[in-house]
């Protein structure tokens, strides 16, 4: 059950979806993380996944880029099925998808520059010079050229996450996955990361973002999917989800965050207050 059928036109809906998730199920022992979940992502779209912690959003991302195997259903990426159990096929998929983690997961023993360059150098087999040039260009893009020679330990959380975004972009992916990219950040640095993500969206990057930043979802998202207890309870354009939803659970979840349907003019104030109200939950990350 995926909730009411969306009737509005979606961005990029004319061509085949880049990512098609068809009725997938994922279990960990007796715990069912995802139950009969379906959704599609079109090229150029920004899809935001929202919902209570533990509702399966992060698990969905990990299934999408073949970090987890499925217990039911299938996932199609660029028209081909994703087989997480086949290492070669899994690697091919992951090279075309970029992923940004809640805990940044920069490689501490490498410099910032090397962190960004290591993907192209090791996986795409670019020669060292070409890989480094690409890395420098991306660091400039996220505004961290001056930190190229530093180690991750010397950077703030927001800076580390921006490097992590550059690292994912270095592989020139067709699709970017963001797993609660700002949940582990201090409120002051949330804005700098969201700005980078918005710029990426404006350039036309296809993105799937798991987030608690409702303002971001409303202003940058093209399509919003609401999760609860491993199922999709509603999906639609931001206006539908945030202003005119008829699904009780969605309304309950949003009101719990202090969101009452008003649009805000002051992005910084609302995103920082939302981040402060919603406690960071470790459960989803550790699963």
């Amino acid at each position: 059950m995926t909730g009411p059928e969306p009737k509005q036109r979606r961005v990029g809906g004319a061509s085949a979806p880049i990512l098609a998730i068809e009725r997938i199920t994922k279990r960990y022992g007796t715990l069912t993380a995802l139950e009969d979940v379906s959704l599609t992502v079109n090229r150029g779209e920004v899809v935001c996944l929202i919902g209570p912690s533990g509702s399966g959003k992060s698990t969905l991302l990990r299934c999408a880029n073949a970090l987890e195997t499925l217990d039911g259903g299938r996932i199609l990426f660029e028209g081909r099925e994703v087989h997480a159990s086949d290492p070669k096929s899994a690697r091919a998929v992951r090279q075309r998808m970029g992923m940004v983690f809640q805990n940044f997961e920069l490689f501490p023993h490498l410099t910032v520059l090397r962190n960004v360059a290591i993907g192209p150098a090791t996986v795409l087999r670019l020669d060292r010079g070409a890989a480094e040039r690409r890395a420098r260009a991306l660091l400039a893009k996220v505004g961290l050229s001056d930190k190229a020679a530093a180690h991750p330990a010397a950077l703030s959380g927001g800076q580390q996450q921006r490097v992590a975004i550059a690292r994912a972009l270095a592989m020139e992916p067709a699709l970017m996955l963001f797993d609660e990219p700002t949940s582990a950040l201090d409120p002051e640095t949330v804005g700098e990361v969201l700005s980078v993500m918005k710029a990426l969206a404006d350039e036309g990057m296809t993105m799937v973002v798991v987030t608690h930043e409702m303002d971001f979802a409303r202003r940058v998202g093209d399509w919003v999917v609401v999760f609860d207890k491993g199922r999709v309870i509603e999906e639609g354009p931001p206006k539908q989800i945030f202003e005119t939803t008829t699904v009780a659970r969605t309304r309950e979840f949003l009101s719990h965050l202090g969101w009452h349907g008003e649009s805000t003019l002051d992005t910084a104030a609302s995103s920082s207050s939302e981040a402060a109200q919603h406690p960071i939950d470790k459960e989803e990350v550790d699963r």
């Binding site: 091919a92 992951r94 090791t122 996986v123 795409l124 992590a164 690292r167």
Partner: peptide, 8 residues
Amino acid sequence: WAALALGM
């Protein structure tokens, strides 16, 4: 995960 996500 991060390393695998890069395609390694």
